[in-house]
Design a protein around this nucleic acid. Structure first.
Lengths: 208, 208
DNA sequence: ACCTGAACACCGTTCAAGT
DNA sequence: ACCTGAACACCGTTCAAGT
């Protein structure tokens, strides 16, 4: 009855460290075994195969997401605060988000934000069907935005460049001033804030 | 000077068929070689390694995306029409979208829709900075929405179920009626349409 | 209960050699 | 110019065997 060399927790901790340091692709059973200093097959006894291992990793990360408690005065500001908090959460775990996406656990990841939004629309007294629309539209907008940001971030160098892509805009029916604006890179934080505000304004009524 | 057994075009056609039929994971160099009835290494002469092969595949697909010519009366309806057309495009190539995402080619994929939107905001006479915001906010919303849809689609069976997740809502500060709405699965087409309309209303002004 | 080692069926890629 | 075959360094997984 010697003590086990490794435990399920130790395997998950080590796997998490590999993913956070070197990305998902670096998480192989052999690399994991090497880092744990055991034979590859020992891992299978504790966590099953790679698929279930990654599943446990995902569940651990999203399980650690606590409630979101928005600040702000009035439904609009508070709904926007929930959206911003959710985006910060996604950004805090860039590698693991890829795993969440791959494993279709996005619904689970969104749950705390979904509950927080549901509380806000309840407090605002919205009609149930409309309330559900607001919750879902904001969730989709925020998480979709964050997913897309990650994709654009690791975009290879653009060929042709944005500038020559738009030219002066004239030949494709776009005003030169608009073409010039679109040729410049966008500030993602600003874009997120303004588009979320527009969405919430459109959902809850009132001026943007 | 015998005729070559395979060509670059033939390799790409075959690779595309594998991806569309069996998904990205099924596209291995050895499977591809088998389908082409040549040695694995022959592929390398024509298209380089797997990474560049997939890159060529992506460029081919997005290159075939033509212009988007929206219908509808007035800027709001026409902007919404562009968004809906872009989503239909993404849905038409479910497997390849994963490749586009993996390879950071989303910007290229969005380009026709970006141009179409730029035309509409030009025609509507919006101020340049605001025009660019409208274009980018709609693009991000639509593509992000589509990406998220794919993730949720292949979601494993939810445990716990949506119903027991929400309960009657009371203990988490959510009204029973709202909880009941959120416990039901959403209609993605309806959600897309309504949230896009809300966003555009918030961006362009006027009632949702 | 927990771990090892051998084995199997896969990968992508390089390189010398053939025609 | 175009293709083959051998070889290398990887994968995930199963299974019998050890303690």
């Amino acid at each position: 009855m010697n003590a086990p060399r490794i435990t399920r927790e130790l395997v998950l901790d080590t796997a998490m460290r590999i993913v956070e340091n070197d990305g998902v692709a670096a998480l192989s059973m052999r690399r994991l075994a090497a880092d744990l200093d055991v034979a590859v097959t020992a891992i299978y006894w504790h966590v099953g195969n790679r698929e279930t291992l990654v599943g446990q990793l995902v569940d651990r990360v999203v399980g650690r997401f606590g409630d979101i408690a928005p600040e702000g005065a009035g439904p609009r500001e508070r709904v926007i605060a929930v959206g911003a908090a959710l985006r910060r959460r996604v950004h805090a775990h860039p590698h693991l988000i890829a795993l969440v996406y791959e494993h279709g656990r996005t619904a689970l990841m969104m749950l705390p934000a979904e509950r927080a939004l549901a509380r806000e629309v309840t407090a605002a007294g919205l009609a149930p069907a409309h309330a559900a629309l607001v919750v879902r539209a904001v969730l989709h907008h925020v998480v979709g935005f964050a997913l897309l940001e990650r994709a654009v971030q690791r975009s290879p160098a653009q060929h042709p460049s944005a500038a020559e892509l738009w030219g002066d805009g004239a030949e494709i029916g776009v005003s030169p001033a608009v073409a010039a604006e679109l040729a410049r890179p966008a500030d993602p934080d600003d874009l997120f804030d303004r588009s979320l505000r527009a969405l919430v304004a459109g959902l809850l009524g009132g001026p943007a």
